[in-house]
Design a protein around this nucleic acid. Structure first.
Length: 464
DNA sequence: GTTAGGG
DNA sequence: CCCTAAC
């Protein structure tokens, strides 16, 4: 085929891949194998890419050996670059933030942050094995450069062009996940950059990145470190909340905003999975490993976000809680009804009739009409009466009279309660109620007939 | 289910 | 007045 036909094929491929791009994760898995050509033989990129273009998901058997090489690269990459749990994912997120707030597109794609991120990865790969990471980068970029030019000619939308380029170029390379991610994020941000006036800018930027492999890569890590420690920006928070709201389907990434988070997850997990089992390379295994870890990380992030929200708005939940508590406490006393003197008299008569503790009986026979008086209420009232009577007991008659003025509790009632308290001490020890009642009744009315009911009646009569 | 005890 | 443990 001649060059034009090849270019046309390439451009077609890009368009198709963009369509598939709705689900970022599966595409990555399916196209894992395609990259090996690029890695093993960067100079044959065109031929390999062409073969994979015709069948997008075709996997070659001869790639196994090359994938092993890739796994080795990945091992070294993780050891060298991943710091704790952050690793590539965190780094890429930071880069994404940085790019998102770049004032100008040239800054992003020029010799600034973008080059730094890309170069850092390349350097880690380069000193990890015999294969030169920079050469890989060059090969990938070279293969993707052509579709870009083609798209530029066909389509005036520069944003889409950039997106296509990023997807097609880097999704094919599984051994450079961070690169894929960073490039992808860049494309997302570029979509929002309105200052892009010329397509040539884009081409120049990409070319700059591609060529920045050798000497530049070693001078950049300082810049990267500095950027890593940037605080999360408002945009990051918003996007993160969006991805959190859609975490029910983590693998089905449908919006560009979610790619920033989930793609980092996917790539990060891919690295770990490959490191654990370097010999296995089936896409199914990748997905199996990816989903749980993805969920775990999502959950962790969600937890952190919740805590963050709590810190931001601590008064909200507290207020809510306190108000509910308050209202509940208010409701607690809502049905309170003051005890009237007739009620107290009725209660005392009931206690004299049925004995202390027979609250249900008293309620049933004497307070059946007043539904708001529960047996517990009767008991509580009796308890309060005992308390009051005992308090008055120590004082003199004058004080009782004074208290009578304050409380509508006639003296005869107080006296009666006091006498009843003698017979039915309250509170009393648990488990000895009936014994004490019978003992008190029999002891007081010992001369009369022993039955409890009679004695109680005698007691009542005594104070009537 | 009822009661005692604490709140 | 409400709640809970013990009965």
């Amino acid at each position: 085929m001649d060059r034009e036909e090849y270019l046309r094929k390439c451009s077609n491929m890009k368009c198709q891949r963009v369509q598939v791009d709705e689900s970022f994760v599966p595409a990555l898995q399916d196209e894992v194998m395609e990259v090996e050509h690029l890695l093993a033989e960067p100079r044959n990129v065109h031929a390999s890419l062409d073969g994979s273009l015709d069948s997008h998901t075709t996997l070659n058997d001869k790639d196994d050996l090359e994938l092993e090489v890739l796994d080795g690269l990945l091992d070294d990459v993780e050891i060298d670059d991943l710091e704790g749990t952050g690793g590539f994912a965190g780094a890429c997120e930071e880069y994404f933030l940085d790019f998102g707030f770049a004032d100008k597109f040239e800054e992003v794609l020029g010799s600034g942050p973008f080059e730094g991120s890309l170069l850092q990865i390349s350097s880690s790969e380069s000193h990890s094995s015999g294969l030169s990471g920079s050469s890989i980068v060059g090969g990938v970029l070279e293969s993707t450069k052509v579709p870009i030019a083609k798209s530029e000619c066909k389509n005036d939308s520069l944003d889409e062009t950039i997106t296509y380029e990023a997807h097609g170029a880097f999704r094919n390379n599984p051994s450079q996940p961070s690169k894929v991610n960073c490039r992808y994020n860049i494309s997302l941000d570029i979509q929002h950059l309105q200052e892009l006036e010329n397509n040539s800018h884009l081409a120049a930027g990409i070319l700059t990145c591609k060529k920045g492999k050798g000497p530049v890569e070693k001078g950049q890590p300082a810049v990267l470190r500095e950027k890593r420690f940037r605080k999360p920006t408002q945009r990051y928070i918003e996007e993160f909340s969006n991805s959190r709201s859609k975490e029910k389907a983590p693998t089905a990434v449908t919006k560009t905003e979610h790619l920033s988070d989930s793609s980092c997850d996917v790539l990060h997990i891919r690295i770990k999975a490959l490191k654990k089992s370097p010999s296995e390379k089936s896409s199914n295994e990748n997905s199996d490993v990816m989903l749980p870890e993805l969920q775990v990380r999502k959950r962790r992030l969600e937890k952190e976000k919740l805590e963050y929200d709590k810190e931001l708005f601590p008064s909200e939940s507290e207020d809510e809680c306190s108000t509910s508590k308050r209202s509940r406490r208010k409701d607690r006393r809502k049905h309170q009804k003051m005890w009237t003197l007739p009620e107290v008299l009725k209660l005392v008569e009931g206690i004299s009739e049925y004995g202390v503790g027979r609250w249900t009986d008293i309620k049933r026979f004497l307070f059946s009409s007043s539904s708001y008086r529960t047996p517990i209420d009767l008991r509580d009232k009796w308890r309060n009466l005992l308390r009051a009577s005992s308090a008055q007991k120590t004082s003199r008659e004058a004080e009782q009279n004074d208290e009578l003025a304050l409380r509508p509790l006639p003296f005869n009632v107080v006296h009666r309660v006091r006498e009843l308290a003698k017979i039915h001490p309250y509170p009393r020890q648990r488990g000895s109620k009936r014994l004490r009642v019978s003992q008190a009744g029999s002891s007081i009315i010992a001369k009369d007939s022993p039955p409890l009911s009679l004695s109680k009646r005698n007691v009542r009569r005594k104070f009537t």
